[in-house]
Amino acid sequence: MISGTTDNPTIGILDADGHGVDLRNCGVCAPELRALFPVIERFIKELKMIPYSVPKRKGELKHVILTLSDTGAVMVRWVLRTKKHFVALRDSLPQFLELLPRYSVVSVNFLPEHKAVLEGEEEIILTRRTTLEFGLNGVPMHLRPQGFFQTNTEIAAALYRQARQWINDANPASVWDLYCGVGGFALHCAEGDRRVQGIETSTESVAAANLAAEELGQENTTFTAMDATEFALAAEQAPDAVVLNPPRRGISAELAQWLNASSVQHLVYSSCNTNSLARDLERLDGFSAKQARVMDMFPQTNHYEVIVRLERIAS
């Protein structure tokens, strides 16, 4: 979040009152990202960008979203209220790229509304490179602007390893990865002739996931842009196992009902909200939770990830 003034911008987060908290000395934020803060500040000042004030609902620059890859490259997404600063940002790209690591991606997003979201629908990628490449657990992955990726890469890698272990132990012939994002769980669970299908509403995420599957030569792994509940209800045949990684609201009652009535034998549910997880586990009364792990996705906060293994209750 960018706040403060053009001459003295705050780069960090907002407190409960909507005022900026600078993260330049934050021990949780990766040093490689904090090293970019002076670069961001420099361009805010040189291009005379006006930070957005949440309490006043005025200003132009709302966010600068930084994503660090394990390769050292970064994705920088400037989120603007209007296109007032767009031309200046576009024209300054050569100078900006000189100060970024190699293979970085830069884009501009437009969020005209005043609401508690990080990005708007329109995004313009300024660099020739359109995806940020990752390598988690030896699995190449891609992130496009507006694609979802876990906040903490190290914990994301641990989540994927855990899901892969549980899926491989069950050894299903077919797996669905619902709410798959850029395909992390699906790509990790693809083994041998196993058929893996990823479902995600974001077309950007699906494009990145299909690219990774192609690079891996995973011919039996495919990704489709579609609502998870609609996909399940329209399917002619259920898989042997399903991985669920929904947003904070959890899964729909319709999807839980479908899963209970289906022939699915194994579930892996990864959740960032224990309240919706508890509700969904009650709804999934055709299954029994066998194992669970808690992972500290957001250090020094009360947010964490829980991954649960469930099995069909024998009738």
Rank of each mutant, 00 (worst) to 15 (best):
A158T: 07
R144E: 10
A170S: 14
H142A: 02
F185N: 03
G184H: 03
Q165S: 11
F149P: 02
A163I: 03
F149L: 14
G192M: 10
E154S: 15
H188W: 09
V139P: 06
E191G: 08
L136P: 02
C189Y: 00
S174W: 03
A173N: 14
L159H: 08
P145D: 01
F149M: 15
F148P: 14
V175L: 13
G135H: 09
Q146F: 08
G183P: 07
F185V: 07
L132N: 00
D193L: 11
D193N: 11
L143T: 05
L178N: 06
V182K: 00
T131R: 11
W166G: 02
L143P: 08
Q162S: 12
L136H: 07
G183H: 01
G138A: 06
H188C: 09
W176G: 04
R144S: 10
W166H: 12
R144A: 05
A158R: 15
M141V: 04
T131A: 10
L159F: 06
Y179G: 05
R144K: 14
I155M: 15
D193F: 13
R161A: 12
M141I: 08
H142S: 06
W166E: 00
V139I: 13
H142W: 07
F148R: 09
Q162E: 07
Y160S: 04
W176D: 04
N168K: 14
E154C: 09
L136F: 03
V175W: 00
S174G: 13
P145Y: 00
L178D: 02
V175H: 01
C189H: 04
G147N: 09
T153Y: 11
W176I: 06
R164W: 10
F148C: 15
R144W: 02
T153G: 13
G183R: 00
L132M: 05
V182E: 02
D169S: 11
C189P: 06
P145H: 04
L187G: 02
V182Q: 07
A170N: 12
A157L: 11
V182F: 01
V139R: 03
G183Y: 00
C180P: 10
G135S: 09
D169L: 15
A158Q: 15
N168Y: 07
W166N: 04
Q165P: 04
I155C: 12
N168M: 11
T131G: 03
Q162R: 15
L187Q: 06
L159W: 02
A190T: 13
E154A: 15
Y179A: 06
N171R: 15
F185T: 05
N152H: 15
P172Q: 05
A173K: 12
G192N: 14
A190S: 13
N137P: 03
D169T: 14
L187R: 02
W176M: 09
G147L: 05
Y179S: 09
V182R: 00
E133N: 09
R164V: 01
Y160N: 06
N168I: 05
D177I: 01
E154I: 08
I167H: 08
E154L: 13
G184Y: 00
A157R: 04
